[in-house]
Nucleic acid binder design. Structure first.
Lengths: 332, 332
DNA sequence: AATAGCAATGAAAGCGCTTACTTTGGTGGC
DNA sequence: GCCACCAAAGTAAGCGCTTTCATTGCTATT
């Protein structure tokens, strides 16, 4: 392994000068900089990042904890975060919580033991208190998709209530009156907020909220089919369904296709998330876009500004928008 | 930060003993082990991984380069690799090449500067020579989805020729005779192998290979629609198409739906990869399963065995299997 | 009882950097 | 010509670990 020592010998300067040249410190004479970089080039020197990190207690990397490394949601998010982090010459280390509290904890430990300079956390299982503790250890922590009051300046969420509202409003405007809603787990704030948005829209159009039109499904799991069937059995006169994510909408597509109901014709659907496959299924799904790209960018910029202690104003709440495709029919 | 020194003081042993206890060296007396772990527990000590890595020149982590962090292919792959790597108490650091040679190179540099003990590489853009150089720097390197003769013991691929064969054979067995094939970029070995499989099946059924039934598409891009249209215009009597990946199949679905052709009825399709969305589109796509899970497991086990210099026999060639769904019609 | 041999521990030398502190030497002001 | 000052470079002390080598105190062998 080639070390800074060899570089310094070849360049005929001290190790300190090489280090300074490498880290862009101002006080190195131009002539020496050139000598140093020539030597580096010649030897093919690569700094040992462990030694750097150990000596400087900075690692030049950002850690990110996601739910899982697969799936249509985290992928683009990681992608966008990485892109933006790299622009600032830092690197991203991603780990996944894999739906288990132990693994989430373990992953955070791993990241912190790698002394990441900042942290982007998406964690379902960790408690607020645990998040607060994490943020205490790594002050440059950004929490995605979750609101922790004590850390409100470090949370980035989307406006779920608005999302639920615009989804429902769209169907109302097209003449639907009997609109069901299949939620995610009601234990999650996201579900409750989206539901509230649904209610707000209903209220605005003077339609009574009817509890039997609500079914609790799951964001993650495929076990939604049964819920859909029961809902449809209960109310044969439903003309539209607001699915709180695209996964749930998929289940509705399945059930309807089994029952010979044509989506966008016999029944209208609006989803939520704008997952990649929402435009591959037929009819293409009208859905609320979850601004993953914006969130990735915002998250990256926010951690970096925390790391560098800039006074970048964090945009805490991102706005979802409706993507109109072909799964909603205009009535009358 | 709590260091090994404080632990050693509290436990009343030397730092060396703490280190040995921590790393499971056999020669530490039971009584001392207990003292050490009690002290660790009490102080909440976490080893500094940089110092460990610097001192031992091992990092306990595996680097992985993927094409992109998003998408239906790399996601499950990363997921499975990570799972298996963790089981052995190592960690995975993932970076993406983002379809650019510079970024691929840069990512490998980053990983190597993090002194990963092993490397799992999926790289389109890097040349064979560059891969060889990488494997020289990091001997425990596994290359996925690509065959480099000089590194044949470190490459894990799927049997693309077999995949092309079983896809085509399936359609032949159901009575199809005029079967088109839309390939990926022919610059890629995968495409050529799958095409060869197609030809093999044809030959077996005594059907002549006809070059005009072949269209060159792209694995990654959505620009396949035009190719599909032209193919369909040229041959109105095609009854089936072998699409060399599911992405291409998607384009065929689109074009056919535009033209009022019913898939699984007017025209039959077999895809390749078994992407998540292949079961969400209607009719569900019959496709060749790309064994991502097996590949993830195999890759993880293989790097680890290289790292530890075990004599694990690497399974170089994984077999794809046909997943029969509803996009192929039985003729006659 | 003397010695060899060994298990268990400790002392201390690094690993390759960064950085506080020190030194050097060239300016300009008087 | 002397001194204060400052930019630029060097010296060397760590950063927190691992690991080699040396030491200690046993047990087993003769």
């Amino acid at each position: 392994m080639i070390t800074i020592k060899e570089v310094s010998e070849l360049a005929q300067v001290s190790q300190a000068t090489v280090s300074r040249a490498l880290n862009g410190h101002a006080t190195v004479k131009e002539a020496n900089k050139i000598k140093v970089f020539e030597a580096i080039e010649k030897l093919g020197y690569k700094p040992n990042s462990f030694a750097q990190a150990l000596a400087s207690s900075r690692s030049n990397s950002i850690g990110m904890l996601v739910g899982t490394l697969e799936g249509p949601f985290f992928g683009p998010l990681m992608h966008n975060v990485e892109n933006n982090v790299r622009k600032k010459n830092m690197h991203l280390i991603v780990t996944s919580g894999q739906e288990s509290k132990d693994k989430e904890t373990d992953s955070i430990r791993f990241l912190q033991s790698k002394q990441v300079d900042g942290l982007i956390v998406i964690a379902d299982r960790l408690s607020d208190d645990e998040l607060i503790k994490i943020a205490k250890n790594t002050p440059a922590t950004i929490i995605l998709n979750r609101y922790v009051p004590e850390l409100y300046k470090q949370c980035i969420c989307i406006d779920n209530e608005l999302g639920g509202y615009i989804a429902t409003k769209h169907m109302l405007e097209l003449g639907h009156k009997k609109i069901a809603c299949i939620t995610g787990q009601l234990s999650k704030l996201d579900s409750r907020d989206r539901l509230q948005g649904y209610r707000n829209a209903l209220a605005e159009f003077g339609i009574n909220y009817e509890a039997s039109l609500i079914a609790e499904g799951r964001f993650d799991h495929d076990g939604n089919h049964e819920k859909v069937r029961r809902l449809l059995d209960r109310h044969s006169d439903i003309t539209a369904i607001f699915c709180q994510n695209d996964n749930i909408a998929l289940a509705v597509y399945d059930v309807c296709s089994d029952r010979g109901l044509t989506i966008g014709e016999d029944i209208s659907i609006v989803g939520f998330d704008n997952d990649t496959y929402s435009q591959h299924i037929r009819p293409k799904l009208t859905t609320v876009n979850f601004p993953v790209i914006e969130m990735g960018i915002e998250a990256a910029n926010s951690v970096l500004s925390l790391v560098h202690k800039d006074k970048h104003q964090i945009n805490n709440k991102l706005s979802p928008e409706l993507v109109i495709r072909n799964s909603v029919k205009k009535l009358n």
